[in-house]
């Protein structure tokens, strides 16, 4: 089964991601967002960068996590092609971003994502699976 699928919204775009655990769900969600934003295969995985973020619950944590990844890309600090969630609880996350510092000429936007929204946001456990739905402002 795929890790994620792209969702439609009248004015915007989003994705649905699945995983067996919260850590993998957060990884898959970030992969989905970066697959919309850029072409991950153009990025090398030569460097790593640690990232920590907080939230009041899993949905809030998801928005904050994706917003961090987006901020690093938009300000040319780091273009991540993959993610490793090292530690996660409902209110905090520590992860390693795998990629390289962004060079806009080599790593253009495929689709410019301006923000991560709380609109119809879902992060939930269904039986043994975790599922997330996130909409992005473009």
């Amino acid at each position: 089964m795929n890790e994620y699928e792209i969702l439609e919204h009248t004015a915007d775009i989003g994705f649905r991601a699945w995983a067996p655990s919260p850590g993998e769900l957060f990884r898959n969600a970030a992969r989905a967002m970066m697959a919309i934003a850029t072409e991950p295969e153009t990025l090398s995985g030569l460097e790593e960068r640690e990232l920590e973020t907080r939230g009041v619950d899993y949905p809030d944590l998801m928005v904050n996590w994706l917003s961090e990844v987006l901020y690093l890309f938009d300000t040319n600090q780091f273009a991540a092609r993959d993610f490793r969630v090292d530690d996660i609880a409902a209110d905090r996350l520590r992860a390693t971003l795998i990629g390289e510092p962004r060079e806009p000429e080599r790593h253009p936007w495929e689709l410019i994502i301006k923000a991560v929204t709380y609109h119809q946001l879902k992060v939930e456990q269904q039986n043994s699976r975790w599922k997330a739905e996130v909409f992005l402002d473009i």
């Binding site: 009041v56 917003s67 923000a115 709380y118 609109h119």
Partner: peptide, 30 residues
């Protein structure tokens, strides 16, 4: 541009917990 988007993102993040403090409940987190 990105400045306005980040201002909105920053304050949406901070307002979730603040809403609890003020006892505000709404049908949509956005």
């Amino acid at each position: 541009r990105g400045l306005g988007h980040q201002v909105c993102t920053d304050f949406l993040r901070d307002m979730g917990p603040a809403m609890r403090k003020y006892g505000i409940e709404l049908p949509d987190r956005q």
